[in-house]
């Protein structure tokens, strides 16, 4: 057993009638990660997080929190926001957070702190129903942070926020992770995952396409475009190069993918040793976006 594993699923599947929401999903989240679940609409992100937070039962497969069988008590250690936040509309923000504090068996003295973090302290006595959409979302985030939990589960945390709010929430998430907290979040916004997450799992139609660190998913697949005076010599040299994963010939250049831990500098040095001087070297750094779109289209 790996003690660093915070959350793990094994072959999780769930259908709603004939709709397959998730199919055979196995995830592993370790301490300190900001783990993003990325996928288009309806790919099963919310379903996965709902199973994780115990509001939906999986049809098959299993999952655990902190290496133990999950029950309602393990949920008290997790701060969650699933889809839109649901509070008692006729209660004030403070009254609503008091209810959550009671459920999680926390003192009330953390309420002011989380309200200030999301800039709702001045509205603390307003009724929940009088909040704007973005304010409701921020209250949802403050509720998830109540009691400074070790783990936060956030489904589309920046949903409905203004640009400033988006930046603030992302910063909040990152600062939580810096303090050693683990965050499991779902998003369909690629740039968000790229900016915030350390790890990512890509879902499509309920199937897990890929998971790993954001770096490895982008870096391993970034491409170089190279050319030299004599393309034939270059071709021979590239073919015998050990750290090239994928090679493709273009009319007057080569497109290649490097192995995971090799860099363009290494390639350049290798070719230089063979007396080949590159006339062109362009780094096509693939964003998660192109990677994501490629994965989603391929499958």
């Amino acid at each position: 057993m790996n003690n660093n594993v915070v959350f793990q699923t094994k072959n999780l599947s769930k259908s709603y009638g004939s709709t397959i929401a998730i199919n055979d999903v196995s995830l592993k989240v370790e301490t300190g990660e900001i783990f993003g679940i990325l996928g288009p609409n309806g790919s099963g992100k919310t379903t996965t997080l709902s199973i994780a937070t115990g509001i939906v039962d999986a049809d098959s497969g299993e999952f655990n929190w902190f290496n133990s069988y999950p029950d309602h008590n393990s949920r008290k250690k997790i701060g969650s926001l699933i889809e839109v936040p649901h509070f008692y509309p006729y209660l004030s923000l403070v009254q609503n957070l008091k209810i959550i504090s009671q459920i999680k068996e926390l003192e009330y003295n953390d309420i002011d702190r989380v309200l200030k973090l999301v800039k709702l302290y001045d509205r603390r006595h307003s009724k929940f129903r009088t909040l704007s959409l973005g304010m409701k979302q921020r209250l949802g985030i403050s509720a998830a942070m109540l009691g400074d939990p070790e783990v936060m589960v956030l489904d589309e945390p920046t949903n409905g926020l203004d640009p400033e709010g988006i930046v603030e929430v992302r910063d909040l998430i990152i600062s939580q992770a810096r303090r050693g907290k683990t965050i499991l979040m779902a998003s369909h916004i690629l740039s968000e995952v790229e900016k915030v997450c350390s790890h990512v799992a890509i879902l499509k139609e309920g199937k897990l396409l890929e998971q790993g660190s954001v770096g490895s998913i982008i870096k391993g697949k970034s491409t170089l475009e190279v050319a030299s005076e004599d393309l034939n010599v270059l071709h021979e040299a590239l073919k015998s190069c050990k750290f090239i994963a994928n090679l493709k010939q273009e009319p007057d250049s080569f497109i290649l993918e490097l192995n995971d831990d090799s860099s363009a500098t290494e390639l350049n040095a290798y070719l230089f040793d063979k007396s080949i001087i590159l006339s062109k070297i362009i780094h096509h750094k693939k964003s998660l976006e192109s990677q994501f779109l490629k994965l989603v289209k391929e499958s």
Binding site: T53, G54, I55, D71, H72, N73, R75, K76, S80, I82, P85, H86, F87, I99, I100, I103, K104, A143
Partner: peptide, 9 residues
Amino acid sequence: KHQAIFGLS
């Protein structure tokens, strides 16, 4: 749903 998420059985 809300109360269950935060830990009520």
